[in-house]
Deep mutational scan, measured.
Amino acid sequence: TFYNFIMGFQNDNTPFGILAEHVSEDKAFPRLEERHQVIRAYVMSNYTDHQLIETTNRAISLYMANL
């Protein structure tokens, strides 16, 4: 899942690491979701930090390219 992918960046001092920290603390994050459209919609609806949203979009693109 995307959640498992992004958790691989925990403790990294990178934008993906920052995203992983936010996702791990977000109890409502769709952890079992595999459809990138649902993940993107969730982030757009629940996150207000523009940098975090952009990082999510980049992470989703990388995740999709590696499926």
Rank of each mutant, 00 (worst) to 15 (best):
T1C: 06
M7S: 04
S24M: 14
R40P: 00
P15G: 07
M64I: 15
A28D: 14
T14Y: 03
Q37C: 11
D12V: 08
L67S: 12
A59L: 09
D26A: 04
H22I: 14
R35Q: 10
D26C: 03
A65Q: 13
A41V: 08
I6A: 01
Q10V: 14
E34F: 15
R31C: 06
A41E: 14
N11V: 05
A28L: 13
M7L: 10
N46Q: 08
M44T: 11
Q10T: 10
Q37S: 12
I60F: 06
Y3I: 01
N66K: 07
T14F: 02
F5Y: 07
S61L: 14
Y3R: 00
E33R: 02
N66T: 14
A20Q: 04
M64Q: 10
V43S: 02
G17I: 04
S61I: 14
L32M: 13
Y42D: 03
L19Y: 03
T1V: 05
M44E: 13
N11P: 04
H22S: 06
R35V: 05
P15I: 08
N57G: 07
V23M: 11
T14P: 03
E25F: 11
E54Y: 07
G17R: 07
H22T: 11
N46C: 07
Q51I: 13
N57K: 10
L62Q: 08
N4C: 11
A20T: 04
I53A: 05
R40Q: 12
E25Y: 11
M7T: 05
Y3V: 02
E21I: 14
E34N: 15
M64N: 08
P30L: 04
V23Y: 05
P30S: 04
L62W: 07
G8D: 08
I6L: 14
A20V: 05
I53G: 03
F29D: 02
N66L: 14
Y42W: 05
R40V: 12
S45V: 09
S61R: 12
Q51H: 12
H22L: 10
A28M: 15
K27N: 10
R31T: 07
R58M: 13
N13C: 09
R35G: 08
R58E: 13
F2R: 02
G17V: 04
P15D: 13
Y63E: 00
S45A: 15
I39F: 04
I53C: 06
K27E: 12
D26M: 04
